[in-house]
């Protein structure tokens, strides 16, 4: 993130600022102001019998929170509707992050710290899950890109796959002169190459059952007992192993950048449903 910071100093009005630093932390400032005003109001206003969502301050904070939640959800629409105009998705992201985080304060004050086993607290808990998952998202967005860039070393995903396929061809060729029991091992390494897969596999950069690794170990063990010259095939396997490792790291980074959304987005919809239930029930049972 540091890059974006140094650049803005040099290039006034330039566009090269990260989403966290957008317009010199405009939305961070707004969010802090919102939190401060809410907290001050909460401290100086002492309702009887106690703080809850039903006071005028409670209603105000609740309305702000509800509007914010709906607006924060609209980021999903904004990023898909590529309309003309002077909007910047970076600005939206920046606002989404800081105003989203401000809900921790604003919505908590709205509750008046009254929690229970009911639909109201459900909405609050869901909101906190969404926010916490979002914090993970910020962390990944801020730390993964540079590592992903270093790891992929100018190669696109398609190119990585092509290279692996090319090495498979080399393996096939190098296996031609081998004895059948050795050739079978190589063939298995080719057939069982796995990249990606389920959530856990994507998050892991070294596969415990990596076919290439297994083949390498097996052939190394056999080399000691003589027979075929396994040197060339081992070196190809080694290269493939390195490539696979890089590709798996790439998959892992992509997964880290995406997977938190699989919590963040569905829970947001659950939150919207709970929020509607919360609002309707409050007014119904008034």
């Amino acid at each position: 993130m540091a890059r974006g910071n140094t650049l803005t100093d040099r290039r006034s009005g330039a566009t090269h600022e990260s989403f966290l630093r957008h317009q010199n932390y405009l939305y961070l400032k707004l969010a802090v102001a919102l939190c401060l005003v809410s907290t001050v109001a909460y401290i100086f206003f002492s309702p009887v019998p106690r703080h809850n969502g039903g006071t005028w301050l409670g209603y105000t904070l609740g309305t702000i929170s509800a509007v914010l939640i709906v607006w924060l959800t609209a980021l999903g629409m904004r990023k898909r509707a590529i309309t003309p105009g002077k909007w910047s998705l970076k600005g939206w992201t920046s606002a989404h992050i800081y105003l989203g985080l401000s809900l921790v304060v604003v919505a908590t004050l709205h509750t008046g710290f009254q929690f229970g086993l009911n639909v109201h607290t459900l909405a609050y808990v869901l909101m906190m899950i969404v926010i916490v998952s979002g914090v993970f998202g910020i962390f990944f967005y801020a730390t993964i890109p540079q590592r992903m860039s270093d790891n992929r070393a100018e190669k696109s995903t398609a190119q990585m796959l092509e290279e692996i396929a090319a090495l498979d061809n080399d393996l096939r060729e190098a296996a031609q002169p081998l004895a059948s029991e050795n050739a079978i091992v190589v063939q298995r390494a080719i057939d069982n190459t796995k990249l990606g897969g389920g959530v856990l596999e994507r998050l892991r950069s070294n596969h415990p059952k990596c076919a290439t690794l297994q083949a390498m170990n097996e052939l190394k063990a056999r080399r000691k007992s003589g027979g075929d010259d396994l040197g060339p095939i081992l070196s190809v396997l080694e290269r493939k192993g390195v490539l696979l490792e890089r590709a798996r790291r790439h998959v892992r980074y992509r997964a880290l950048l995406e997977l938190w959304l699989y919590i963040h987005v569905p829970i947001t919809f659950a939150l919207l449903a709970a929020l509607i239930a919360h609002i309707v029930s409050v007014f119904y049972f008034w």
């Binding site: 990260s18 989403f19 590529i82 909007w87 998705l89 970076k90 992201t93 967005y141 890109p145």
Partner: peptide, 16 residues
């Protein structure tokens, strides 16, 4: 209006 869409649509400010 608004200029290059690639830059406007970048969520993190990477595209310049």
């Amino acid at each position: 209006a608004g200029g290059p869409a690639c830059v406007r649509a970048c969520p993190t400010g990477a595209a310049i």
